[in-house]
Design a binder for these strands. Structure first.
Lengths: 175, 175
DNA sequence: GACACAAAGTTGAGATGTCAACCAGTCGTC
DNA sequence: GACGACTGGTTGACATCTCAACTTTGTGTC
């Protein structure tokens, strides 16, 4: 898949390039941070507002867009989820009255997902404390340089995966 | 929970401090990267080796420890999982013959979890290509400085949550 | 217009994760 | 040595996620 540093003997597979200490620390700390932050955020959100973290991730873009509705595939792009996962989750949210589905006229395969009044109430109630949690657990612990470093690194990784990161400042604009 | 920049009027709650552009970019890119990397890694692992990503996370520490067995709570610490999740997952792995449970003599509430011969075969087969995947999707895309920045930032976050990050080099040792 | 192929979503089955409640054993303290 | 509190781990009910298969519609291309 990728050339190894040394030409390899004909038969046995080359010894894998294990992670060195520096690489392992970055990778392991990152994974652990992700897991712990997400479960902590999800727990607080559920306790205080009866919303799951996935609910929140869907409601935020819906609440910010012009007329409160988006196509399913747009929600997939924004969240990075598979369409199957999105479909299942939207169904559950529909049962709870947070969103509603309207068939789409211009493309009759498609569906508009609209945020309901209940959904808007829920997200507006939850957002302030959620942002405070994100600050407490992540943003406010780091310097601006650290935040930029993370955003830049993640951007590289996302581009490599064919996803769309939020744009950073143009080179030279920063500082 | 945290002082806001301006003294607030007596009654209504203070306007929340929303994330600015820089903060939002870091947070959103990070979340998206996590999600996409994890699902990509999990898919490859499952396809090629019949192991789930959680399986992998459990088998790695078990395979590296002296006698191939650990207490359940030790596995929880290393992975950052809740004990309930760990218990369920170990049960499923037990059914598939990847680990086995042995009651603990010194503390009779406890249980040793041991990796089986099958478990060891599975992890040894999967590890090389998994590491290659981690390199391809993450490690090899970033510079050493970026990896350190991520590890350092995650360390701060983890300490704040009471978790144990992998130790970084002492200040001054680096470079 | 007919054909093949791609895109948008849904569905069902099964794997995985969460929460709260529980059991059993240990530890501190009086 | 008895009581209460804590620790280690399991369980059941339920929420969520993944994978593969499917339906429906749009988009060339000849």
């Amino acid at each position: 898949m990728r050339a190894t540093s040394a030409g390899s003997a004909p038969s046995s597979p080359p010894e894998p390039r294990w992670l060195d200490e520096r690489e392992a620390r970055a990778w392991r700390n990152l994974q652990m941070m992700n897991g712990l932050i997400e479960t902590a955020l999800a727990r607080r959100l559920g306790l205080r507002h009866g919303l799951s973290y996935p609910d929140y991730r869907v409601l935020v873009p819906l609440s910010m867009v012009e007329d409160g509705r988006m196509r399913v595939f747009e929600l997939c792009e924004v969240t990075g989820w598979e369409k199957s996962r999105m479909s299942h989750h939207l169904h559950r949210m529909g049962l709870r009255g947070l969103v509603e589905t309207v068939r789409c006229d211009t493309d009759r395969r498609g569906a508009w997902i609209g945020i309901t009044a209940d959904g808007r109430r829920a997200i507006e109630a939850a957002a302030p404390s959620h942002v405070a949690d994100v600050r407490e657990l992540f943003v406010d612990l780091l310097t601006g340089e650290q935040l930029d470093a993370i955003a830049d690194a993640a951007e590289v990784v996302l581009l490599n995966l064919g996803a769309s990161p939020l744009p950073g400042p143009r080179a030279g604009d920063r500082r």
